[in-house]
Computed example of a mutant assay.
Amino acid sequence: MKILVVGATGTLGRQIVRHALDKDHQVRCLVRSTGRASFLKEWGAELVRGDICKPETLPSALEGVDVVIDAATARATDSASIKQVDWQGKVNLIQATQEAEIKRYIFFSIINAKDFDNVPLMNIKYCTELFLQESGLDYTIFQLAGFMQGLIPQYGIPILDNQPVWVSGENTPIAYMNTQDVAKFVLKAVEVSGTEKQTLPIMGDRAWTGGEIVALCEKLSGKQAKISRIPIRLLRFLRGFTRWFKWTLNASDRLAFAEVLASGKPMDAPMDEVYEKLQIDRDDITSLEEYLEEYFSRIMKKIKEIDFEQNKKKKKKKGSFFK
């Protein structure tokens, strides 16, 4: 099967590429820069230059493709806005897919998106869901909650470096999942029947609050976290302030997501039906405890090795001094 992955250099996209190649699919990646995506070519993927914000670049990328997996999203540092990438870009890609007569389309949304029309990213995700449902394509919409990979820079690294862990006083539990496991669900949806024109959640079996994650990181690292709390009203002010400047619009839209985290509405959903439909064993899916335990175990081992080498060098220097 020939699969086009859009957003292939991202946290999720690269895992989808890796998993698809491991399952012997032909993988083509739509990329804006071949240099930045060279690792995908080394893995065995085909690279095609293009940009979903430039519809004229899409037809050639779609030639001969059986499935489009759309994992693209605007980054906070992008010059293009969330609206340009996550809405107009997606419309361009969906329409180009229709014109290429490709029926299968995979899209990633966010759980509870329809409940936050005041948050740009959530509203755009929900509107894209509706657009896809009316497109006539054999879509599968996966609603995600959060990626475990994002917990490392947010909690793990600051705690290890004795730096502040910045929290907004959020009390929203989130059912995080490893992106490698998300990729398993995605490829299963491509391979098994019965997922066409379906909207399915993909998330961990347990939702975690920020406080619970901090406590787990402290336990696994043996270090105490320094918590710095940002009032939600300050985030609202910063969002309003950054809206005045064109170059900070994307950051402003991202800040608006704090409203979701402070809502208290769990980002969670039952997964029993999804596991059954996609024929996936729960035991093959990484729990958050397992993910963080593996991370801290690896890092703490490395720290001990570095300390050992440094102490060995110090002892050598001391010995040479007395000779």
Rank of each mutant, 00 (worst) to 15 (best):
A8E: 09
G10M: 14
T11I: 13
T11V: 14
G13L: 02
R14Y: 01
R18N: 00
K23V: 13
D24P: 03
S33M: 05
S38K: 15
L40W: 07
W43L: 15
E46N: 13
R49C: 08
R49P: 07
I52P: 03
P55L: 09
P55Y: 08
L58C: 02
A61T: 09
V65C: 10
V65D: 08
V85S: 09
D86F: 04
D86Q: 11
G89E: 01
N92W: 03
N92T: 10
L93Q: 00
A96P: 04
T97G: 11
E101R: 10
Y105Q: 11
F107W: 11
I110A: 03
I111S: 03
D117L: 14
D117A: 14
N123S: 15
Q133S: 13
E134Y: 07
G136M: 12
A145T: 15
F147T: 12
Q149C: 03
I152K: 06
P153Q: 10
Y155V: 08
I174A: 09
M177D: 08
D181S: 07
V186I: 14
K188Q: 15
K188D: 09
T195C: 13
D205Y: 05
W208E: 08
T209G: 03
I213S: 11
L220Q: 13
K223R: 15
A225M: 03
I232H: 02
L235Q: 06
R243L: 12
R243W: 09
W244I: 06
F245T: 02
D253S: 10
A262R: 10
G264C: 13
M267P: 04
A269Q: 03
D272F: 03
K277G: 10
D283L: 12
T286L: 09
L288Q: 12
E289C: 06
Y291Q: 07
E294K: 12
I303S: 00
D307M: 00
F308S: 08
K312I: 03
K313E: 14
K318V: 12
K318N: 11
K318I: 13
